[in-house]
């Protein structure tokens, strides 16, 4: 579903991701783990197309949803307005969102993360790229999220998620360890 070859990413002189190959197959649930600064966020951003690789190629064969580590949304718009706008930009149907009708800047951290995840699910993506998706979520919301992830994988989709939590890696079919921008 996603195929990356020789992908690297530089920030000036600093190399955040060294030549990396990555393949994602149907039904797979992949966990990216590693210490801070290992390159997990960079790899997910490059796979999502949010960041251009300095070298290498990324091939995305299906619609892909992306939830960055820090929510990427318009803070002056309400959750509904955010969802409507991104849905219309993507040419996808809008989705209901169970969040207060006030500017996103005034939401709690957890609520903003829920909105961030809702945007990732817009347009019924076959692949989800989630960067520490459960951060700031309460237990109930975590459970709902993992149910959605499992359902997608069961339907033939695939999910890659970055995490710092050991117990979350146990859900994964495959664990990719990153260190210093290298896949180990």
């Amino acid at each position: 579903m996603i195929r990356a070859r020789g992908v690297s990413r530089r920030y000036g002189a600093h190399v955040a991701l060294h030549e990396t190959d990555f393949d994602l197959s149907e039904g797979e649930l992949v966990a990216l783990v590693g210490p801070n600064g290992a390159g997990k966020t960079t790899l997910l951003s490059v796979l999502a197309g949010a960041l251009e690789p300095s070298a290498g190629t990324v091939e995305r064969r299906v619609p892909t949803g992306w939830a960055p580590q820090r929510p990427a949304l318009y803070s002056r718009l309400t959750p509904r307005e955010n969802v409507e706008l991104f849905a219309r930009l993507a040419g996808a149907p809008s989705a209901a969102v169970d969040l207060p009708e006030r500017p996103a800047a005034e939401l709690s951290v957890g609520q903003r993360q829920r909105l961030n995840l809702a945007l990732a699910f817009l347009g019924e993506p076959r692949v989800l790229l989630l960067d520490e998706p459960t951060a700031a979520l309460d237990d109930d919301r975590r459970a709902v999220l993992w149910q959605q992830v499992a359902a997608l994988c069961a339907e033939g989709g695939a999910v890659v998620f970055a995490t710092q939590l050991h117990e979350e890696t146990e859900r994964a079919d495959r664990v990719v360890q990153l260190h210093g921008g290298h896949v180990e």
Partner: peptide
């Protein structure tokens, strides 16, 4: 600042 540009850059705009 809101990191929306990266989201838009994914083919949305």
């Amino acid at each position: 600042d809101e990191r929306v540009l990266q989201r838009l850059a994914r083919g949305l705009a």
